[in-house]
Design a protein around this nucleic acid. Sequence first.
RNA 1: GUGGCUGUAGCUCAGUUGGUUAGAGCGCCUGACUGUGGCUCAGGAGGUCGUGGGUUCGAAACCCAUCAGCCACCCCA
Length: 419
Amino acid sequence: MQNFRTIKGTHDLLPNELIIWRAVENFIHNIMQQNGYGEIRTPAFENTELFVRGIGTDTDIVTKEMYSWTDQGGNTLTLKPELTAPVARAYLQHQMGNQNPIHRLYYIDALFRRERPQKGRQRQFHQFGAEAIGSPNPEQDAEIIALAYNIYKKFNIQDMSVRLNSIGNAEIRPLYLETLRSSIKKIEMELCTTCQTRIEKNALRLFDCKNPHCQELLDQYAPFIYDSISDDDRNHFEMLTRILKEMEIPYFHDKKLVRGLDYYSHTTFEITSSVLGAQDALCGGGRYNGLIEQLGGKSTPAVGFAAGVERLILAINKQNNLSIPPDIYFIHLGDEATVTASKIANDLRLNCGKIVVMETLRRSLKAQMREAGRCGANTTIILGEKELAESKIIVKDMSTGNQNEVPISELSKFISSNS
RNA sequence: GUGGCUGUAGCUCAGUUGGUUAGAGCGCCUGACUGUGGCUCAGGAGGUCGUGGGUUCGAAACCCAUCAGCCACCCCA
């Protein structure tokens, strides 16, 4: 018989882990709503073409990481590897642009990418993120960056840095790429092999190379895209940095920061933390003024970010094996008491809003008490045959050890006022 | 996709140059205390040694394959 287990790069989440997941998710929902962002959920899979056009044909995600298949009807489908394109698709499909000139949307969702798993990188993973669609202005960029930054700040993530850059509008890019290629022509052969292939396919990404020798050469010979952006774009960027300073968000203008997805334009940013190891990006984002048009809509400015839930939790996690303690642990002895206890436990849950855990293993009183102590219940309720005969029940405060006998009829009143 | 390291009880890990019955600590269960937790003591359960092949009289250990995890490359959240 085969032993089934989770597919490589996927994980079960068990109750003790879900405590922190819940806390993180709740927090994200709250802060997003506070900032005026509305939740959006899109399907787990879309037409493959949406991602090819949105993310870019030459990106690694599209060329080798997507889970794609053809269904029985001959449609080419893909499990979503990112969420900006689906959100943009939904924005277009529901003609949101006609209802209101600006939309603030957020999501928490599962994504799929077929990469080699390692710490902070899985094949099914989760992202939260926000997209502000409609505003071309730098204050909108600042709002998005602040939103992301404040979430990490609230969780007290250590050793964070915000890297920021502008890659200008799409029109200047061909010209810039031409000057970039010609200026590094003479040193082309000294670059690593991946860089050499990038020169033709995706020259901007040369700046992402981690090879120190390549970086030295680039520092010496390669012009930064930031230095060739238009005056308008530079003003946009300067206004953005001014607002960030005003908001006291520390940032670093990294002229080498370019992003891996094709749809970005103008502002790009990334928040990293060294506590994560090699996969140090907590979140990444930027402007994508061309995406909506690219997907068949009219030209619409937009800015957003996406952040890894697992990486946030990794950064938060001090390996606390937290579990939610019940308010009440319900001990009972004997068949008749069991029947009555089941009813009372149910009533307490419904009427007093308490977390009530009732013994179902029929262990000895001692073992039940031990369980009550271990799970951290504030209160233990004991119903044995003796108590049942007298229509009473024992209520024990676990921190003081004091216990009271209470008539069963008054139990819920007693619980409500005493715990 | 490439390279390196690892896989023994629920968890953390021992296990000598291959040697017969695979261990510890923590956790779990039971009892001392016939109906009262945390402390102590005594007992107990729990293992296809990741999986499949091979070498050998004999493999947890050596070899090959495979699966999974970790680390780095890559990529990105």
